[in-house]
Structure formats: structure tokens, C-alpha cells
Write a protein that binds this DNA or RNA. Structure first.
Length: 223
DNA sequence: GACCAGGCACATC
DNA sequence: GATGTGCATGGT
């Protein structure tokens, strides 16, 4: 192992330890079932989680938070129920696209989907209209418990602000960094990403609060 | 009232 | 390949 690689590993673990010590376990994903996690992953695209919860509660109140119900439901009706999550027309379509995918490829069974090879499944998810890299990886990690590191706006922003990666780093490059320098551990990837979001929400928004940030001082390491 | 939030697809150059 | 735009609600 090269000196540089060892450094990367050390820094990524240090960041994790720092965040974990500061915030403790985050108990992610906030969802009761794998299916609900998937719904949330699609609804939370560019949207605050509070609004997503409202939308999911609407589905539950109307007893339609299931594959069968959503598969059969009209786009228009679904859009009305998920309205609080924003982009409701496009998200209704995306949810239905996923239901079609699940029914036609895995007989509507999340469990069956889970037995699919991870790389293959990721590619198939990406081919579904409305599922991009982050949504696919959120589904793989949080709904299906595959060791896949999720990169989101917070992850990118935090890593860039601390000069841990360049401004032009792509989703794939950033993900590869975590995959190559951490043990392939679902629990670790789960907690790590959740901690990034916690840090992002509390300290690393567009207007950062750097003076109180647990990661202050970790600014000058370039990977 | 502006700005932002746990993206993605599509158009255009 | 890079860059711009539409999608939309609810909280700060």
C-alpha cells in the first residue's frame, strides 16, 4: 500500500470518528420498511426531508403506501397525495416508473430485487427514468443494505470546502475515494453518510457556521 | 420576498 | 463534455 493511500485511509477514518464523537449514531434511514425507504429516496430529490415526511404520511393515511396500490394508482391521484414534497407531477411519474420496474423485473418484490448482483442492479436502477446515481445508491445502501457509499450535495460540499477534493470532482470519483479507502461495510457507509448530512444541516449549509464545526482544522488536507 | 432543500432529465451549444 | 433550465412545496 502506498504512502498516499495510507494517508487517505487515515483521514477518512479520522473524519468519521470526529463526526461520530460529535453527533453519535444517526439511526438512518428514517423509514419503517425498505419499500418506504425507496419512496423516500425518490421523493427527497432536491427537497427537504420535512416535506417528504408530509408526503409519505399522506400515503400512509390513505393506506396506499404499498407496491400494489402505487402500481395501480393514477399519476394524477398520486401527484395530489405527494404534493408537499414538491415537483409532484414529475415525482409521481418517477414513483410509477419504479413500480413498473419492480413489478416487471422482480414480481413486485423488494426482497427478490435484493438478491440481484449489486453492480448489475445499480445499472438497472440507473436505467429507470427518474433514478440517478444518488437515488440508486440510497436505495442500494439504505433499503437493500448493500455496501455502497452515497454521495449527496452535503457530502460534496463538505469535502470541497475542506479542500479534501477539488471543485470539479465528479460523483463517481468521490464515491471511488470512499470505496477504495474504507472497509466495504454497510453499517459504516450508512452511518458515515448520515453523519455527513447531520453536519451539513447543522453547520455546512450554503451559509456555513465554520467556527463551531466539529471538522474545523481539517481544512488543508488535499487527497 | 428571496433563498434554500438529502436530484434528475433534457435541450442546446 | 460542459452548461443551462424546468420541475414546486414549505421552512427560514
Amino acid at each position: 500500500m502506498s504512502k498516499k493511500t495510507r494517508k487517505h485511509k487515515r483521514i477518512l477514518i479520522e473524519i468519521y470518528d470526529t463526526l461520530y464523537n460529535a453527533f453519535g449514531p444517526q439511526y438512518w434511514w428514517p423509514g419503517e420498511t425498505p419499500f418506504e425507504v425507496i419512496i423516500g429516496a425518490i421523493l427527497t430529490q432536491n427537497t427537504s426531508w420535512g416535506n417528504v415526511e408530509k408526503a409519505i404520511n399522506n400515503l400512509k393515511k390513505n393506506r396506499v403506501c404499498s407496491i400494489n396500490s402505487l402500481y395501480k394508482m393514477q399519476n394524477k391521484q398520486l401527484a395530489a397525495l405527494i404534493k408537499p414534497a414538491g415537483y409532484f407531477n414529475i415525482k409521481a411519474k418517477r414513483l410509477k416508473e419504479f413500480m413498473n420496474f419492480l413489478v416487471s423485473n422482480y414480481r413486485g418484490s423488494v426482497k427478490k430485487m435484493r438478491t440481484e448482483d449489486t453492480q448489475l442492479l445499480r445499472n438497472r436502477l440507473l436505467s429507470v427514468n427518474g433514478i440517478g446515481p444518488e437515488t440508486a445508491d440510497s436505495i442500494l445502501l439504505y433499503a437493500l443494505e448493500k455496501p455502497v457509499f452515497v454521495i449527496d450535495a452535503y457530502t460534496k460540499r463538505i469535502m470541497q470546502r475542506h479542500k479534501l477534493v477539488s471543485d470539479k470532482t465528479t460523483y463517481h470519483e468521490l464515491q471511488t475515494l470512499f470505496h477504495e479507502n474504507l472497509p466495504q461495510d454497510t453499517r459504516l457507509f450508512n452511518e458515515y453518510h448520515a453523519l455527513f448530512v447531520k453536519l451539513g444541516k447543522d453547520y455546512c449549509k450554503t451559509k456555513p457556521k465554520c467556527s463551531e464545526c466539529p471538522l474545523r482544522g481539517a481544512e488543508v488536507i488535499i487527497l
